[in-house]
């Protein structure tokens, strides 16, 4: 009986939008739980079968990581929202080209890297852009005393400025590894280079970031 229900549900999901709607009306909460339980690969498979709703699961699952990555690349909230949206729509349009031999997130990161790099190059006077920290940085000032909050804000501004000054690929490799904690193997697949190359590039990028933060380190040492 349970197997028969599952078959009916699959048929309804994969064939008629009305059936899909019927199931949603029946129990939205249970479907969210089901959608959270299914893997990216299953979502992609359903999407390829024409189930647009499966894409919503993928968007909800990856939107924060992609948005943060793009935001740190561009340091502009509105630009990041626009580019992140473009990333997901590009993925939706070209989902047929996703071969499935890598994680969906890896494929999505690669699309995000291309879009963000292109936009970053096209933005005029990128190096001189100011960081709208007061608008977007969610520093939780209630948990910190005012002095710590100010210092935290200053550090974040300095780090973002240093990231802005890096080459897009250097910034991306630091963000993938140190911000998103993506494994080396996946970073290598995103950048389409060997793992050893990723390690050497990451070391070089970190040194470049450290060089850009050197004035901050020196001033902090003087203050101390």
């Amino acid at each position: 009986m349970t197997e028969a229900n599952a078959i009916i549900k699959t048929v309804l999901l994969s064939t008629t939008p009305a059936g899909n709607l019927f199931l949603k009306k029946q129990s939205n909460k249970s479907e969210e739980m089901v959608s959270e339980a299914i893997s990216d690969a299953e979502c992609v498979r359903r999407l390829l079968q024409g189930e647009t709703g499966a894409f919503e699961t993928l968007v909800r699952r990856h939107q924060k990581a992609i948005f943060n990555l793009v935001y740190r690349m561009l340091s502009d909230y509105d630009e990041a929202a626009e580019i992140s949206q473009e990333v997901f729509l590009s993925a939706y349009r070209s989902i047929g080209q996703f071969r499935g031999d890598a994680n969906f997130s890896t494929w999505l990161y690669r699309i995000a890297l291309n879009h963000a790099s292109t936009r970053r190059r096209s933005l005029a006077k990128w190096q001189q852009r100011t960081v709208p920290m007061q608008l977007t940085e969610p520093v939780n000032e209630q948990e910190l005393d005012p002095a710590e909050a100010v210092e935290q804000k200053e550090i974040q501004e300095q780090v973002q400025k240093a990231l802005n000054g890096l080459e897009p690929r250097d910034a991306m490799i630091i963000l993938l590894k140190d911000l998103q904690d993506v494994p080396y193997e996946e970073v290598a697949r995103v950048l389409e280079v060997p793992v050893g190359t990723v390690k050497s590039r990451l070391h070089r990028a970190r040194k470049a970031l450290k060089a850009r933060l050197a004035p901050y380190f020196n001033s902090r040492g003087t203050r101390k």
Binding site: Q63, K64, N68, A81, L89, V139, I155, D178, L213
Partner: peptide
């Protein structure tokens, strides 16, 4: 170098705009 890594790792997470998923799905 250790501090740099820590700074990057402790950058606060930024939430996407409200209704981001709905907008993406509407366009999709």
């Amino acid at each position: 170098l250790k501090e740099c890594i820590r700074y990057i790792a402790t950058l606060p997470s930024v939430d996407p705009p409200i209704g981001f998923t709905q907008r993406v799905m509407a366009q999709a």
